[in-house]
Design a protein around this nucleic acid. Sequence first.
DNA 1: GTTTGTGAAACGATTCACAGCT
DNA 2: AGCTGTGAATCGTTTCACAAAC
Lengths: 206, 206
Amino acid sequence: MPKVAESTVRRLSLYLRFLEEFEEQGTATVSSEALASRGGTTSAQVRKDLSFFGSFGKRGLGYQVAELASRLRQILGLGGRYSVALIGAGKIGTALFEHHGFRDRGFDIVAIFDRDPAKIGSVWSGIAVSDVAELERVLTANPVDIAILVTPADAAQEIADRLVRLGIKAILNFAPVQLNVPHEIAVRTVNLVLELEALSYALTNR
Amino acid sequence: MPKVAESTVRRLSLYLRFLEEFEEQGTATVSSEALASRGGTTSAQVRKDLSFFGSFGKRGLGYQVAELASRLRQILGLGGRYSVALIGAGKIGTALFEHHGFRDRGFDIVAIFDRDPAKIGSVWSGIAVSDVAELERVLTANPVDIAILVTPADAAQEIADRLVRLGIKAILNFAPVQLNVPHEIAVRTVNLVLELEALSYALTNR
DNA sequence: GTTTGTGAAACGATTCACAGCT
DNA sequence: AGCTGTGAATCGTTTCACAAAC
């Protein structure tokens, strides 16, 4: 398990996506150049990214599409399925729950929490919405691998603390705050307003 | 307009958020150290980030909260309001439309498009959903600054091409594809599955 | 005494370029 | 001949450390 940059991991995910497209089209081998042009990077970058994990190609030939895809799945830990808790059943939480892309790629939402009494107890595609006060009870009985946090900003840190105490190892955070958690816990924050502000900067500064 | 890294711009947005919190609490001045600890970075990083745009602090004292916030808004181009087109009125598109954070920060969704006849013509908070076939007509009559693309993967590139032809300058892309657009057009892609896969990598590799 | 602003140093990531297989 | 794998060179970002300002 070499230590590689975040940016490398992101590109590996992209390469996997492209390989799956090549696979569907029936392409058997690809060059680093083909993968690169598909993903807006360079062939040297592709080869360097892969080289952190081994050598998967044949010189003069390229990479076997199916084999490289399988290796990337293994590297990214996408062999099996992950169970996921969704915390916050508002608009965005609901949209994420109904988003098929997650299930399709091995991420199963198996628990939903909210603090709104109107939502608690309702059943969504077979999953009951629990009171967020029950977080400890529910996730102790049925532990999950990943939590998706979609609460208002003011609740996010408190829930994150409780998740950490429950031993969670990975959090996908949509609350517009910088979560404070021990460094061994993986956190990715998606801050939608931040993305728009980056576009605003680009628009104003030519 | 100095050329600064993407990562710097993201941090400036974060600093602005923190400054607004300090402002609410009635704090009048902050040090680079205070901003840094709030945002998980270092004081040197904060000072370097700001130094690209000028010198806004007083040595020995720190920064005036209100003044620095105002400077950051100016740097980020957040003085006025932006008009935004939402393309794709599915689950995530709907959630984004109803997301108050955008309006609160100056981004007004003023046009909605979809290709589903069941949705076309319905009116959401005063905005009629248009047929995506009408994209050119509607956006020529009422141009927007930013497009938020929330279409299925297979439609995204075609719509992006049409947006570029319409002269759009910034796209926030939620479709899980790598958009191919001229380099002078600002694109930020939010790929939710990619974020989960990055967590998967972190989980499997310790 | 405190904290900024900033060159210089350190670090990290990307690109180059070519030897080594096929 | 073609394409990978990889050290070395380059480029960009972060951190250091300190003189200057208050």
